[in-house]
């Protein structure tokens, strides 16, 4: 045979040579289809968190004291069986792990797609035809997942610095008084705009992510398939309405630190005592 080097046009060279299979369950992570499962599963977890967080925050409309009570209840999760804040930390670590896996899966699969595309006169991972490509089925949400994702991550850091760690100068942060922190933070117009933009990105992300999840997990039954888009849109819409209500209503003056009876106590313990008293009297009067 006169054959020398195999012609890559005839014998294609893998662009991502297969690695030795890792032991179960790590082998699931080795494949992109497996990672999409993990992305979908962590997506469900994170979606659950977003929904719970949004519902919890609605306590803000019950007034500063109830919001304080809710915050304390989170720390008291596990009742008297598990030491205070332990279960909350478990949940937090779980969330962090889910975020980590979700992002790692997203990044690595995106990287794979970039490699699969960049050899074809393509720039920057996003495949584009020099003559222009006409998109038909994909939508704004699906094509911007890799932008809405990082926006959400940046926002998350900002949000934690703002309302969990109290690092930012625009609020005089009082640990234990979320109403105060929230209303002063969102009362600042630029901050409110950041929240609005980020939550719109979050809703867009969820609009595609929640539908995509069904595909990635292979949840498919002709009887219910038509509902999948609706579920995704409904979830995204609810979360959008709930989360946008906070900055908008703060700017509108509905949420206002002037209505916070404990606003003058900037020390965490004094502030907490103030709320305990109010809650105790409220409890009696009922």
């Amino acid at each position: 045979m006169a054959q020398t080097m195999p012609n890559p046009l005839r014998h294609p060279q893998p662009i991502r040579p297969r690695k030795k299979a890792a032991p179960f369950p790590l082998n699931i992570w080795q494949s992109a289809v497996g990672r999409k499962w993990i992305m979908a599963l962590t997506g469900i977890g994170l979606l659950g968190f977003v929904v719970a967080h949004m519902i919890g925050n609605l306590h803000v409309y019950e007034g500063p004291a109830k919001l304080h009570e809710y915050a304390e209840a989170l720390r008291d999760l596990g009742g008297s069986i598990i030491p205070r804040t332990y279960l909350l930390w478990v949940l937090r670590f779980g969330l962090i792990a889910m975020f980590g896996l979700h992002i790692a899966a997203a990044y690595s699969t995106k990287e794979m797609s970039r490699k699969a595309s960049h050899g074809a006169n393509v720039v920057d991972g996003q495949k584009s035809y020099p003559g222009g490509q006409e998109y038909i089925a994909s939508n704004y949400a699906s094509r911007t997942m890799r932008w809405t994702g990082p926006i959400i991550l940046l926002y998350l850091v900002f949000h934690l610095a703002d309302l969990t760690w109290g690092w930012l100068p625009h609020t005089d942060y009082v640990r234990g008084d979320p109403y105060h922190n929230l209303s002063t933070s969102l009362g600042n117009l630029p901050v409110a705009i950041i929240y609005i933009v980020a939550n719109v990105a979050l809703a867009i992300h969820i609009f595609h992510g929640a539908w995509s999840m069904f595909q990635s997990l292979g949840i498919n039954n002709p009887k219910y398939n038509s509902a999948r888009r609706g579920i995704a849109a409904g979830l995204a819409g609810l979360i959008l309405i709930g989360n946008l209500s906070f900055p908008i209503l703060t700017q509108a003056g509905v949420i206002d630190d002037d209505s916070n009876p404990c606003a003058q106590f900037t020390d965490t313990e004094e502030n907490a005592e103030c709320f305990e008293e109010i809650l105790a009297t409220e409890g009696h009067s009922e």
Binding site: P12, P14, I15, R16, P17, R18, S31, A32, V33, R35, K36, T109, K110, M112, S113, R114, K115, A116, S117, Y135, I136, A137, S138, S142, R143, M145, H208, W211, S212, Q215, S216
Partner: peptide, 16 residues
């Protein structure tokens, strides 16, 4: 699937 992933990108459910 494993062979597919040697050569091609990942699905993000665009539907194109």
């Amino acid at each position: 699937v494993d062979t597919m992933e040697e050569f091609f990108g990942t699905c993000t459910n665009h539907g194109e």
